[in-house]
Nucleic acid binder design. Structure first.
Lengths: 204, 204
DNA sequence: AGACTTATCTACCACTCGATACAAAAGTTG
DNA sequence: CAACTTTTGTATCGAGTGGTAGATAAGTCT
């Protein structure tokens, strides 16, 4: 074991609590007092473990990404591109209204606009959102190579569309929309997805 | 004319400047120092005119709503429901990437999550977003009565879908996406909209 | 003119922000 | 045991927060 006094709190548990605070109040709205209270530790412990408030956010985002990667693995394992889209949208509808978490998506709630001194936070969150979109895009590129998507359809555009709807659902959920409302949006959105074997010429 | 010393600044101009600050930094991120500097006035003048920081936001939101109502009048004047959807989405793509304004939508950028003392701000913004959705819904209800929408289609669901995509496009634009990207999303989204005369049974 | 009303400016309030200095505590290593 | 290393709690730092007191300026009223 390493030398020195052992840490008295569980890093993962503390990160989960911090994640919830950031999720509910955004980066700027989350104060050190909120965070330390939720995590059950004092400021010096927080700074020793995570370096700064921004470092704590990044650690929480990493943990958030771990959670989401499980969902994405299931989503990307869909048999067809349309399956993937369906899984993606319904997964978003469920997770964004999971009563175990604050409503919406941490990557959206975390902060689209921040004050002086935290201008890079929105970029950080945007980069993480873009990663999810990239995963979808790669899957759709593969799908098209396998003849699973119509010739005229654009994998990148479809991935961006789904990512955009997911962000919108995050906004909707944070406004208090219930799970059924998000499912409805997911269903309508799926109508924009090209059907395997059908034409996608944009005329209908 | 009313008695007393006349106001030395133009309320509308000042509100436009305040709007931009809220738009770019969000409610919590916008400080009094930023606001007064942008508006070209001192704190006492701000408080005399708008009562509080929250009062200033609401006044800016009212002004924002005025601007948007012009767009919505054009959008709702579309001949068919699909016309309305097309106008709505392309209008959003343009306005959310208008170089004259910060990217995205004030009603989204303003604050989805706020800190202690401004918990009601997200509700305020959500209510204003919901108003746009309601306008679309009423227009689609009318469209369906006029036989302009297929029997199986749900006006409320379509309005909510469009509103959700608009929010998502706001998030996308605030991440730095260019106008062409938003147009692409608008085009794909339109594919989810039922075509007048076609069936809408959700089977494909 | 002089009373009255409203706006503006300087200076400042109490408070909270993120972050830290310092010493005591709790372990490991020799 | 003593030397060393790391964490923890108390107490606080300087900077910035939203908001305001009080004096002065700039108009209208009689």
């Amino acid at each position: 074991m390493v030398m020195g006094r052992p840490r008295a709190f569980c890093t993962e548990k503390a990160l989960d609590e911090a994640m919830e605070v950031f999720w509910r109040h955004g980066y700027d709205g989350a104060t050190l007092a909120m965070l330390t209270k939720a995590m059950g530790i004092k400021p010096p412990s927080l700074y020793a473990a995570f370096g700064s408030k921004e470092g704590l956010l990044k650690a929480a985002l990493d943990r958030y990404a771990e959670r989401r990667s499980e969902h994405m693995r299931y989503v990307l394992a869909g048999a067809t591109a349309r399956d993937v889209a369906e899984r993606f949208l319904s997964s978003i509808a469920e997770s964004h209204t999971d009563p175990a978490n604050p409503p919406g998506c941490l990557l959206v709630q975390g902060g689209l606009a921040c004050g002086a001194g935290s201008e890079n936070i929105p970029f950080e969150l945007a980069a993480r959102r873009a990663q999810g979109e990239a995963e979808l895009r790669e899957r759709f590129v593969q799908a098209r190579e396998e003849g699973d998507l119509p010739e005229g359809s654009d994998p990148a555009a479809l991935a961006r569309f789904l990512s955009t709807v997911a962000s919108g659902m995050g906004v909707l959920a944070s406004s208090g929309a219930d799970r059924e409302a998000l499912r409805e949006v997911a269903l309508v959105s799926l109508g924009a997805f090209p059907v395997c074997g059908a034409a996608a010429d944009g005329s209908g």
